[in-house]
Protein backbone atom coordinates (compact mmCIF):
# COMPACT_ATOMS: atom_id res chain seq x y z
CA UNK A 1 0.00 0.00 0.00
CA UNK A 2 2.92 2.23 0.85
CA UNK A 3 4.21 1.78 -2.67
CA UNK A 4 0.90 2.87 -4.14
CA UNK A 5 0.96 6.15 -2.20
CA UNK A 6 4.58 6.86 -3.09
CA UNK A 7 3.98 6.06 -6.77
CA UNK A 8 0.74 7.95 -7.07
CA UNK A 9 2.18 10.66 -9.37
CA UNK A 10 3.61 7.98 -11.68
CA UNK A 11 0.33 6.02 -11.68
CA UNK A 12 -1.62 9.20 -12.35
CA UNK A 13 0.63 9.94 -15.31
CA UNK A 14 -0.14 6.49 -16.73
CA UNK A 15 -3.86 7.00 -16.14
CA UNK A 16 -3.68 10.23 -18.13
CA UNK A 17 -1.80 8.48 -20.96
CA UNK A 18 -4.26 5.61 -20.84
CA UNK A 19 -7.26 7.91 -21.06
CA UNK A 20 -5.63 9.89 -23.87
CA UNK A 21 -5.18 6.75 -25.93
CA UNK A 22 -8.64 5.26 -25.24
CA UNK A 23 -10.95 8.25 -25.61
CA UNK A 24 -10.34 9.07 -29.32
CA UNK A 25 -11.02 5.48 -30.47
CA UNK A 26 -14.28 5.34 -28.51
CA UNK A 27 -15.51 8.66 -29.93
CA UNK A 28 -14.28 7.96 -33.45
CA UNK A 29 -15.74 4.46 -33.39
CA UNK A 30 -19.09 5.86 -32.31
CA UNK A 31 -19.24 8.65 -34.88
CA UNK A 32 -18.00 6.59 -37.81
CA UNK A 33 -20.27 3.67 -37.05
CA UNK A 34 -23.44 5.77 -37.27
CA UNK A 35 -23.42 6.37 -41.05
CA UNK A 36 -22.04 2.86 -41.60
CA UNK A 37 -24.67 1.27 -39.39
CA UNK A 38 -27.43 3.33 -40.97
CA UNK A 39 -26.30 2.29 -44.41
CA UNK A 40 -26.11 -1.35 -43.35
CA UNK A 41 -29.62 -1.16 -41.90
CA UNK A 42 -31.03 0.05 -45.22
CA UNK A 43 -29.19 -2.06 -47.74
CA UNK A 44 -28.82 -5.81 -47.64
CA UNK A 45 -25.58 -5.72 -49.62
CA UNK A 46 -24.02 -3.07 -47.37
CA UNK A 47 -25.08 -5.08 -44.36
CA UNK A 48 -23.39 -8.23 -45.60
CA UNK A 49 -20.20 -6.41 -46.50
CA UNK A 50 -19.92 -4.19 -43.42
CA UNK A 51 -20.88 -6.78 -40.84
CA UNK A 52 -18.68 -9.38 -42.51
CA UNK A 53 -15.73 -7.00 -42.57
CA UNK A 54 -16.42 -6.02 -38.99
CA UNK A 55 -16.36 -9.55 -37.72
CA UNK A 56 -13.21 -10.37 -39.69
CA UNK A 57 -11.46 -7.34 -38.19
CA UNK A 58 -12.68 -8.25 -34.74
CA UNK A 59 -11.26 -11.74 -35.20
CA UNK A 60 -7.76 -10.39 -35.58
CA UNK A 61 -6.06 -10.52 -32.18
CA UNK A 62 -5.08 -7.20 -30.60
CA UNK A 63 -1.42 -8.09 -30.44
CA UNK A 64 -1.49 -8.86 -34.15
CA UNK A 65 -3.34 -5.72 -35.15
CA UNK A 66 -0.99 -3.46 -33.23
CA UNK A 67 1.92 -5.09 -35.01
CA UNK A 68 0.39 -5.42 -38.47
CA UNK A 69 -1.22 -2.01 -38.76
CA UNK A 70 2.05 -0.08 -39.05
CA UNK A 71 3.19 -2.56 -41.68
CA UNK A 72 -0.01 -2.07 -43.65
CA UNK A 73 -0.04 1.71 -43.23
CA UNK A 74 3.68 2.16 -43.62
CA UNK A 75 4.17 3.88 -40.26
CA UNK A 76 6.97 3.16 -37.80
CA UNK A 77 6.43 0.00 -35.74
CA UNK A 78 6.93 1.78 -32.43
CA UNK A 79 4.85 4.85 -33.30
CA UNK A 80 2.50 5.43 -30.30
CA UNK A 81 -0.28 6.36 -32.74
CA UNK A 82 -0.42 2.73 -33.85
CA UNK A 83 -2.19 1.73 -30.65
CA UNK A 84 -4.72 4.49 -31.20
CA UNK A 85 -5.35 3.35 -34.76
CA UNK A 86 -5.67 -0.30 -33.76
CA UNK A 87 -8.12 0.52 -30.98
CA UNK A 88 -10.16 2.61 -33.41
CA UNK A 89 -10.39 -0.32 -35.81
CA UNK A 90 -11.73 -2.52 -33.00
CA UNK A 91 -14.12 0.16 -31.82
CA UNK A 92 -15.61 0.46 -35.30
CA UNK A 93 -15.70 -3.31 -35.73
CA UNK A 94 -17.76 -3.71 -32.55
CA UNK A 95 -19.83 -0.57 -32.94
CA UNK A 96 -20.98 -1.09 -36.54
CA UNK A 97 -22.90 -4.16 -35.45
CA UNK A 98 -24.71 -2.39 -32.60
CA UNK A 99 -25.38 0.60 -34.80
CA UNK A 100 -26.86 -1.61 -37.52
CA UNK A 101 -29.06 -3.31 -34.92
CA UNK A 102 -30.00 0.09 -33.54
CA UNK A 103 -31.22 1.49 -36.85
CA UNK A 104 -32.86 -1.80 -37.83
CA UNK A 105 -34.87 -1.66 -34.60
CA UNK A 106 -36.68 1.49 -35.80
CA UNK A 107 -39.94 0.15 -37.17
CA UNK A 108 -40.96 0.78 -40.75
CA UNK A 109 -44.32 2.10 -39.57
CA UNK A 110 -42.63 4.90 -37.64
CA UNK A 111 -40.34 5.68 -40.55
CA UNK A 112 -43.25 5.90 -42.97
CA UNK A 113 -45.36 7.96 -40.57
CA UNK A 114 -42.55 10.50 -40.31
CA UNK A 115 -42.43 10.68 -44.06
CA UNK A 116 -46.19 11.00 -44.29
CA UNK A 117 -46.29 14.05 -42.04
CA UNK A 118 -43.67 15.71 -44.20
CA UNK A 119 -40.25 15.08 -42.67
CA UNK A 120 -37.43 15.30 -45.19
CA UNK A 121 -34.80 12.56 -45.21
CA UNK A 122 -32.34 14.50 -43.08
CA UNK A 123 -34.99 15.69 -40.63
CA UNK A 124 -36.32 12.19 -40.30
CA UNK A 125 -32.87 10.85 -39.55
CA UNK A 126 -32.07 13.36 -36.80
CA UNK A 127 -35.53 13.83 -35.32
CA UNK A 128 -36.93 10.31 -35.56
CA UNK A 129 -34.49 7.56 -36.38
CA UNK A 130 -31.45 8.66 -34.38
CA UNK A 131 -33.36 9.22 -31.11
CA UNK A 132 -35.19 5.91 -31.50
CA UNK A 133 -31.93 4.10 -32.19
CA UNK A 134 -30.35 5.85 -29.20
CA UNK A 135 -30.77 3.22 -26.48
CA UNK A 136 -29.21 0.45 -28.58
CA UNK A 137 -26.41 2.79 -29.67
CA UNK A 138 -25.79 3.61 -26.03
CA UNK A 139 -25.52 -0.06 -25.13
CA UNK A 140 -23.02 -0.49 -27.96
CA UNK A 141 -20.83 2.42 -26.85
CA UNK A 142 -20.70 1.00 -23.35
CA UNK A 143 -19.31 -2.28 -24.67
CA UNK A 144 -16.85 -0.43 -26.88
CA UNK A 145 -15.71 1.72 -23.97
CA UNK A 146 -15.06 -1.20 -21.64
CA UNK A 147 -13.23 -3.24 -24.22
CA UNK A 148 -11.13 -0.29 -25.44
CA UNK A 149 -10.00 0.63 -21.94
CA UNK A 150 -9.07 -2.96 -21.24
CA UNK A 151 -7.39 -3.55 -24.63
CA UNK A 152 -5.28 -0.39 -24.40
CA UNK A 153 -3.10 -2.17 -21.83
CA UNK A 154 -1.74 -4.40 -24.60
CA UNK A 155 0.10 -1.34 -25.90
CA UNK A 156 2.58 -1.82 -23.07
CA UNK A 157 3.95 -4.85 -24.91
CA UNK A 158 5.27 -2.59 -27.64
CA UNK A 159 6.38 0.01 -25.13
CA UNK A 160 3.50 2.48 -25.36
CA UNK A 161 2.79 4.28 -22.12
CA UNK A 162 -0.53 2.99 -20.73
CA UNK A 163 -1.59 1.41 -17.45
CA UNK A 164 -0.36 -1.83 -19.01
CA UNK A 165 3.16 -0.72 -18.11
CA UNK A 166 2.35 -1.52 -14.51
CA UNK A 167 1.85 -5.12 -15.64
CA UNK A 168 5.05 -5.50 -17.65
CA UNK A 169 7.06 -3.60 -15.04
CA UNK A 170 5.57 -5.45 -12.11
CA UNK A 171 6.22 -8.73 -13.85
CA UNK A 172 9.86 -7.93 -14.52
CA UNK A 173 10.39 -6.80 -10.91
CA UNK A 174 8.41 -9.76 -9.53
CA UNK A 175 6.24 -7.17 -7.79
CA UNK A 176 2.64 -8.31 -7.41
CA UNK A 177 1.34 -5.07 -5.86
CA UNK A 178 2.20 -3.07 -8.96
CA UNK A 179 0.27 -5.48 -11.19
CA UNK A 180 -2.77 -5.52 -8.91
CA UNK A 181 -2.64 -1.71 -8.76
CA UNK A 182 -2.69 -1.67 -12.55
CA UNK A 183 -5.69 -4.01 -12.74
CA UNK A 184 -7.62 -1.96 -10.19
CA UNK A 185 -6.71 1.27 -12.02
CA UNK A 186 -7.99 -0.15 -15.34
CA UNK A 187 -11.24 -1.24 -13.69
CA UNK A 188 -11.67 2.21 -12.16
CA UNK A 189 -11.05 3.97 -15.48
CA UNK A 190 -13.52 1.61 -17.19
CA UNK A 191 -16.13 2.22 -14.48
CA UNK A 192 -15.71 6.01 -14.65
CA UNK A 193 -16.08 5.92 -18.45
CA UNK A 194 -19.21 3.82 -18.07
CA UNK A 195 -20.72 6.25 -15.56
CA UNK A 196 -19.96 9.19 -17.87
CA UNK A 197 -21.47 7.44 -20.90
CA UNK A 198 -24.63 6.34 -19.08
CA UNK A 199 -25.04 9.83 -17.59
CA UNK A 200 -24.72 11.47 -20.99
CA UNK A 201 -27.18 8.91 -22.32
CA UNK A 202 -29.65 9.71 -19.56
CA UNK A 203 -29.38 13.44 -20.22
CA UNK A 204 -29.82 13.04 -23.97
CA UNK A 205 -32.56 10.43 -23.74
CA UNK A 206 -34.68 11.21 -20.68
CA UNK A 207 -37.41 8.96 -22.02
CA UNK A 208 -35.17 5.95 -21.72
CA UNK A 209 -35.27 5.62 -17.92
CA UNK A 210 -36.43 2.05 -17.84
CA UNK A 211 -33.69 -0.55 -18.10
CA UNK A 212 -33.71 -2.93 -21.05
CA UNK A 213 -36.51 -5.44 -21.07
CA UNK A 214 -35.92 -8.45 -18.89
CA UNK A 215 -37.27 -11.90 -19.09
CA UNK A 216 -39.36 -11.29 -16.01
CA UNK A 217 -41.13 -8.34 -17.61
CA UNK A 218 -42.18 -10.44 -20.55
CA UNK A 219 -44.05 -12.84 -18.33
CA UNK A 220 -47.72 -12.39 -17.60
CA UNK A 221 -48.32 -10.04 -14.69
CA UNK A 222 -48.23 -11.66 -11.30
CA UNK A 223 -45.59 -14.25 -12.16
CA UNK A 224 -42.71 -12.00 -11.17
CA UNK A 225 -39.84 -14.20 -10.11
Amino acid sequence: MDWVWRSLPMIWGLVVDHVAVSVPPIILGFILSIPLGYWASRSRVARAILLGLGSVLYTIPALVLIVVLPVALGTAILDPQNLLRALTVYAIAIMVRSSTDAFSSVSDDVRESARAIGYSGVQRFFAVELPLAGPVLLAGVRVVSVSTVSLATVGAVIGISTLGQLFTNGFQLDFQIEIVTGIVAVLIVAAVFDVIITTVGRLLMPWNRRPARTRASRRPAGVTA
Partner: peptide
Protein backbone atom coordinates in the same frame (compact mmCIF):
# COMPACT_ATOMS: atom_id res chain seq x y z
CA UNK B 1 -14.87 -7.77 -19.85
CA UNK B 2 -13.13 -4.84 -18.19
CA UNK B 3 -10.48 -7.09 -16.63
CA UNK B 4 -7.24 -6.52 -18.53
CA UNK B 5 -6.01 -9.90 -19.74
CA UNK B 6 -2.38 -8.84 -19.68
CA UNK B 7 -2.60 -7.80 -16.03
CA UNK B 8 -4.44 -10.92 -14.94
Amino acid sequence: RALPTLGL
